[in-house]
Amino acid sequence: MTATERRKAFRAVLSGTACLHPASVFDAISGRIAADLGFETAILGGSVASLAVLGAPDHIILTLTEFADLIRRITRAGAPPLLVDADHGYGNALSVMRTVEELETAGVAALTIEDTLLPRPYGPDRTELLPLAEGLGKIRAALAARTDPSLVIVARTSALSVTTTEDAVTRARAYAEAGADGIFVTGLTDLAQLTALREATGLPLLVGSAKPGLGGAADLARHGARIALQGHATFPAAMQAVHDTLKALRDGTAPKDLQGLPDSATTKRWQRDGHYDTAIRDFLGG
């Protein structure tokens, strides 16, 4: 699919009636595996990107260029329509415009811009929100910067966990009135919060962290959610697999006796051997 086709596919998810779990991806192969497994959407989290590029925790030290380069590798490999966590847009509203330009060019289907005060300012470690006017300015800037109208701009707020449900509704309503395509929330503790947000905005909802026991995807869907994250377990799983393989080799296990490796046919499918074999025959004389 082209970038525009992927964006339209993501919009179809948002306009549907089901709530889907995106695949958490972090590189070209993980994105391709997600596509092979039939995931309708994928997500690249900010914390995952920081680990993949820097091997560092999520302290907003990844640069926009590094983030866009990673995204480009994932989208060109054929990942499902990709939602990315663009954090605070890497600065003020003008920086948000640059962020949208770079990520649209990199092929994302959707991106979130949040109203959390980032990066962490000097002083006690506590999460703070931007003033509503500043957060609204960022969403308006993001919308003004896109050139492909099918690109999905999602306004993200942490108000449910930082201030109040009422504040979250006020912020979400303002972002919706500005033209945001969806509302991403974290800190969900009650499905009634989703109902309030849906009624206030009329927009599809995307759910990050949520209190356990709120129900499954069907329950979330009935309250307006169309995307619900399941965390980012794939990258820790990959780290553990690398550790276990290297440790086994270090401890003397012969390569042929290693456990958990894909067979040759699977590896060839993931790396698209058939595509390259055809190109070799067509353009390199066999």
Rank of each mutant, 00 (worst) to 15 (best):
Thr4Asn: 05
Thr4Ser: 14
Phe10Lys: 00
Arg11Val: 05
Arg11Tyr: 07
Ala12Gln: 09
Val13Cys: 06
Val13Lys: 01
Ser15Pro: 03
Ser15Val: 10
Leu20Gln: 07
Ser24Arg: 01
Val25Tyr: 00
Asp27Leu: 01
Asp36Asn: 14
Phe39Gly: 00
Thr41Tyr: 05
Ala49Tyr: 01
Ala49Gly: 02
Val53His: 05
Leu54Asn: 11
Pro57Met: 14
Glu66Thr: 02
Ala68Val: 08
Ile74Lys: 04
Arg76Thr: 10
Leu83Tyr: 12
Asp85Met: 15
Ala93Gln: 07
Leu94Ile: 15
Ser95Arg: 11
Val96His: 00
Arg98Ala: 07
Thr99Ser: 14
Leu103Gly: 08
Thr105Asn: 07
Thr105Ile: 15
Ala106Tyr: 00
Leu111Glu: 04
Glu114Asn: 08
Asp115Ile: 01
Asp115Cys: 03
Thr116Trp: 00
Leu117Ala: 06
Pro119Asp: 11
Asp125Gln: 13
Thr127Phe: 10
Leu132Phe: 08
Gly137Cys: 02
Ile139Val: 15
Arg140Ser: 14
Thr147Pro: 10
Asp148Thr: 15
Asp148Cys: 15
Ser150Asn: 13
Ile153Gly: 04
Ala155Met: 04
Thr163Ala: 11
Thr165Asn: 02
Arg171Ile: 01
Tyr175Ser: 05
Ala176Val: 10
Thr189Arg: 07
Thr189Ile: 08
Leu191Cys: 10
Ala192Met: 14
Gln193Asn: 12
Arg198Lys: 14
Glu199Gly: 05
Pro204His: 02
Leu205Lys: 00
Val207Ala: 00
Gly213His: 03
Gly215Asp: 10
Gly216Glu: 15
Ala217Cys: 15
Ala218Leu: 12
His223Phe: 08
His223Tyr: 12
Gln230Met: 11
Gln230Lys: 12
Ala233Gly: 09
His243Pro: 02
Thr245Cys: 13
Ala248Gly: 08
Leu249Pro: 03
Asp251Gln: 10
Ala254His: 03
Pro255Val: 01
Leu258Thr: 06
Leu258Arg: 05
Gln259Pro: 03
Asp263Trp: 04
Ser264Lys: 15
Thr266Met: 08
Arg269Leu: 13
Arg272His: 09
Gly274Arg: 10
Tyr276Asp: 06
Asp277Val: 04
Asp277Gly: 02
Ala279Trp: 09
Ala279Gln: 09
Leu284Ala: 12
